[in-house]
């Protein structure tokens, strides 16, 4: 794929991924066929900052986990009132990493 196109993608989407993944993504995109560009450029990624805000405001209802697509964990959190508030606190620190992992999984469906 065209390096300029890939760099543009990286520049606008780097915040959605773990920093150590970004380089590998760039390498992979450059090596990839041009026909997949339409698919990749239209993926909707979840913003880690938004999920952190949701986690702080509505974490005890499990909304943050529902938002990033962890329905099972979300239901568990909802039924236990956010693990009696403890799980909610833990998730304030883990949700950003979890969101980036989910984004990576989403992109990987197109990369491989």
């Amino acid at each position: 794929m065209d390096a300029q196109k890939v760099d543009m993608f990286i520049m606008s989407n780097a915040k959605f991924f773990e920093s150590h993944h970004v380089h590998a993504i760039r390498e992979r995109l450059i090596a990839m066929d041009d026909s997949k560009w339409v698919g990749i450029s239209t993926i909707q990624f979840k913003d880690p900052t938004t999920s952190l805000i949701v986690s702080i405001l509505a974490g005890s209802l499990g909304i943050d986990r529902f938002m990033i697509g962890d329905t099972g964990i979300g239901v568990g959190k909802l039924l236990t009132c956010g693990g009696l508030g403890i799980w909610t606190i833990v998730d304030w620190f883990m949700i950003q990493g979890a969101t980036r992992e989910k984004n990576m999984q989403k992109l990987q469906q197109f990369l491989y």
Binding site: G83, I86, I89, V90, F93, M94
Partner: peptide, 24 residues
């Protein structure tokens, strides 16, 4: 950091930060 926050949030109860650390 998380264990500190959990310690302060669950102040009188001694087990809260341990449970939080286990989940983390």
């Amino acid at each position: 950091l998380m264990s500190l926050i959990a310690l302060i949030a669950g102040m009188p109860l001694p087990i809260i930060n341990l449970i939080a650390s286990v989940i983390f």
